[in-house]
């Protein structure tokens, strides 16, 4: 498994445990998020702490995951390293997603 899911106070924290969120892992992210939503949780925090590399397939899976949460859901991202942050900046996704420097800040914001 390349992902771990923990439900805390109605928020699903999806942590990527693989070091790379690339074309070989991206389809699994969509399935994991889809399963979380099917199980009744549409507030999701994606934790990228362990991700050292992301490609366009990984980015596509993140966008897809966001869309799955729908208008009633919530989707935030935390713990990006510099290489991952660069992908978001190059594509301007850093302007569109709610991104937090760490899980605590993201969690506090979602619980506020």
């Amino acid at each position: 498994m390349s992902f771990e899911v923990e439900i805390k106070e109605g928020i699903a924290v999806v942590a990527v445990t693989a070091g790379r969120l690339d074309a070989s892992v991206a389809p699994e992210l969509k399935k994991v998020v889809s399963n979380v939503i099917d199980d009744g949780t549409s507030r999701i925090m994606l934790d990228l702490q362990r991700v050292q590399f992301m490609d366009s397939s990984g980015l596509g899976a993140v966008i897809s995951s966001f869309k799955l949460t729908g208008q009633k859901g919530e989707f935030v991202i935390c713990n990006m390293n510099e290489a991952v942050k660069e992908i978001f900046e190059l594509t301007h996704m850093d302007r569109l997603f709610d991104i937090y420097p760490n899980a605590d800040e993201g969690f506090q914001k979602m619980c506020a």
Binding site: D55, G60, I63
Partner: peptide, 15 residues
């Protein structure tokens, strides 16, 4: 941009 309208693929060439 409308987030729901964001493409999920096709970012590779842009990157």
């Amino acid at each position: 941009v409308d987030m729901d309208g964001l493409p999920e693929s096709g970012w590779g060439v842009q990157l």
